[in-house]
Simulated assay, not measured.
Amino acid sequence: MSLNTGLSEEDRKSVAEGLSRVLADTYTLYLKTQNFHWNVTGPQFGQLHSLFEEQYDELRVAADDVAERIRALGHFAPGSYVQFAELKSVAEAPATPPASDDMIRQLAGDNETLSRVARSVLTAAENAGDEVTIDMMVERMAAHEKAAWMLRAHIQ
């Protein structure tokens, strides 16, 4: 059955490729944030444990939404660590968990990275006239900028 939503195949492919990068980074950040949630220690344990949980819960929902948008555009969503490793720009968590302040710095920087990646996909979506993806990327940028701010507030 053909797909005819008003976007060309070329535009859908371009946007889906960008969304695949967002998905890989989102999933990588999800896993890293959950890792830090499990392994945080120190005087801010309670606050950070809760904050990291809120953030990884939001990322889990976001990953599903992004993957489903890729499918709605008629493309397959990446879904393996191998694929994510090829697409991601967010660094994975180190084998030995860092100190809590370093966790915060890493996650803040990673959220800023994801905001920039989403911004690049926003541009591709604007060029394609893909309002659905535009809205999604604006939402993702807002979520990542807020998460980075909340993290930075713990060490400023």
Score class of each variant (00 low, 15 high):
residue 84 F to G: 00
residue 116 R to A: 08
residue 132 V to P: 02
residue 105 R to Q: 15
residue 83 Q to K: 04
residue 44 Q to R: 15
residue 66 V to Y: 02
residue 45 F to C: 05
residue 125 A to K: 12
residue 69 R to D: 09
residue 93 A to E: 12
residue 132 V to T: 13
residue 76 F to S: 11
residue 77 A to F: 14
residue 75 H to Q: 11
residue 85 A to G: 11
residue 127 N to I: 01
residue 55 Q to N: 04
residue 65 D to I: 03
residue 139 E to W: 01
residue 51 L to C: 04
residue 72 A to P: 14
residue 129 G to H: 08
residue 122 L to Q: 02
residue 96 T to S: 12
residue 115 S to F: 13
residue 57 D to M: 07
residue 88 K to E: 03
residue 121 V to G: 00
residue 79 G to I: 05
residue 88 K to L: 07
residue 140 R to V: 11
residue 116 R to K: 07
residue 65 D to K: 14
residue 137 M to A: 08
residue 109 G to N: 12
residue 45 F to N: 04
residue 131 E to V: 11
residue 123 T to P: 03
residue 66 V to M: 02
residue 47 Q to V: 06
residue 100 S to K: 07
residue 46 G to T: 12
residue 83 Q to W: 03
residue 93 A to R: 08
residue 53 E to Y: 09
residue 101 D to F: 13
residue 81 Y to K: 01
residue 142 A to P: 02
residue 73 L to C: 03
residue 129 G to Y: 03
residue 61 V to H: 09
residue 134 I to H: 08
residue 118 A to M: 05
residue 95 A to L: 10
residue 79 G to C: 10
residue 78 P to K: 02
residue 81 Y to H: 06
residue 62 A to R: 10
residue 109 G to P: 06
residue 72 A to W: 12
residue 51 L to W: 02
residue 79 G to V: 01
residue 68 E to L: 01
residue 60 R to Y: 02
residue 43 P to F: 15
residue 129 G to T: 00
residue 118 A to Y: 00
residue 57 D to Q: 06
residue 112 E to Y: 08
residue 120 S to C: 11
residue 137 M to V: 01
residue 130 D to V: 01
residue 75 H to G: 07
residue 101 D to N: 14
residue 63 A to K: 09
residue 87 L to R: 07
residue 63 A to V: 00
residue 88 K to N: 03
residue 116 R to N: 09
residue 90 V to D: 00
residue 104 I to G: 00
residue 54 E to Q: 10
residue 82 V to I: 04
residue 141 M to R: 05
residue 142 A to G: 04
residue 81 Y to R: 01
residue 111 N to C: 07
residue 46 G to N: 14
